[in-house]
């Protein structure tokens, strides 16, 4: 247990030292604030309040940004140490390999949590102070923050897996970009394309729903966007799929994290150096 804490602390301190933590905070804060301020510009007549508009627009951008931040933090978790020569040293210490994976995962998650809390949280507080908001609105905002963290957790575990399977940092970067592109852009396009090509409607709605739910990015979309009116314009395939309850959507993302971490731990404990 203490080994996990030691590694977690070291990862967190590393992110602060090499300025990754501050860069992530600034990125998320500037995004959240620019959307909040943009929303407050008086354009036309809106039915929705400032906070709920910001929640929706921020979540639709977080969908792309949070995975990117998560992958950047975690893509070199193992391969980076391997190139530095410290992995060999670390493995000669009296600690288990799953300590290393879990310690690094928690450390990276804390960096992201910190960035979301400070970056999005400060913009949320600004909106409450400026605009005043109903309880249900800021609950939505907090839920958006929570699900963003969970989405980040999925992509941090994907990053860990990439860094385990890559031979070098350079190829890990390539793989991370590829995964990001596939899961956030291509997956939906392919799904829509198949759906359009399927004129005889061979694809059952259950299968389609299953395919949408199989992609954690789409699950995030469903959770944040499909529910609200303001969101139906931007929610892509998620709008076509029928939605399970919000808690089961969060459950699906948590299962993704657990499965990916178990695979990473399994692969790492079998790895020969």
């Amino acid at each position: 247990m203490s080994a996990i804490i030691t590694i977690t602390t070291a990862e967190f301190q590393r992110a602060i030292r090499n300025r990754w933590a501050i860069a992530s905070i600034l990125l998320l804060a500037s995004l959240a604030f620019s959307l909040a301020l943009l929303g407050s510009a008086p354009i036309g007549d809106t039915r929705a309040s400032l906070m709920s508009i910001t929640t929706v627009s921020l979540s639709s951008l977080s969908l792309y940004l949070i995975p990117l931040v998560a992958l950047t933090i975690s893509f070199d978790a193992i391969v980076g140490e391997e190139e530095q020569g410290t992995l060999l040293l670390l493995l000669s210490y009296p600690i288990s390999r799953w300590h290393i994976i879990l310690g690094k995962f928690i450390g990276h998650l804390l960096v992201l949590l910190f960035a979301i809390l400070v970056g999005y949280g400060s913009a949320g507080l600004y909106l409450i102070v400026q605009d005043g908001s109903q309880t249900s609105e800021w609950i939505d905002y907090v839920q958006m923050m929570t699900s963003s963290l969970l989405l980040g957790a999925v992509f941090i575990s994907i990053g860990c897996l990439i860094s385990l399977l890559s031979k070098s940092r350079a190829s890990a970067i390539g793989a991370a970009v590829g995964v990001w592109l596939f899961m956030l852009v291509l997956y939906d396009l392919i799904l829509l394309g198949v759906l359009l090509a399927d004129k005889e409607q061979k694809i059952q709605p259950e299968l389609f729903n299953g395919l949408v739910l199989a992609n954690p990015a789409d699950v995030y979309r469903l959770y944040n966007l499909a529910g609200s009116d303001a969101a139906s314009m931007v929610s892509g395939v998620a709008n076509i799929a029928s939605t399970p309850g919000p808690n089961s959507l969060l459950g699906i993302m948590s299962i993704w994290v657990a499965v990916l971490l178990v695979i990473a731990i399994y692969l790492f404990s079998r790895k020969e150096l």
Binding site: R17, Q84, G85
Partner: peptide, 14 residues
């Protein structure tokens, strides 16, 4: 491993 001290051939610390 608790009783082994190891110095790898090439090591660069952060």
């Amino acid at each position: 491993h608790a009783d082994i001290g190891f110095l790898p051939e090439t090591v660069s610390f952060p």
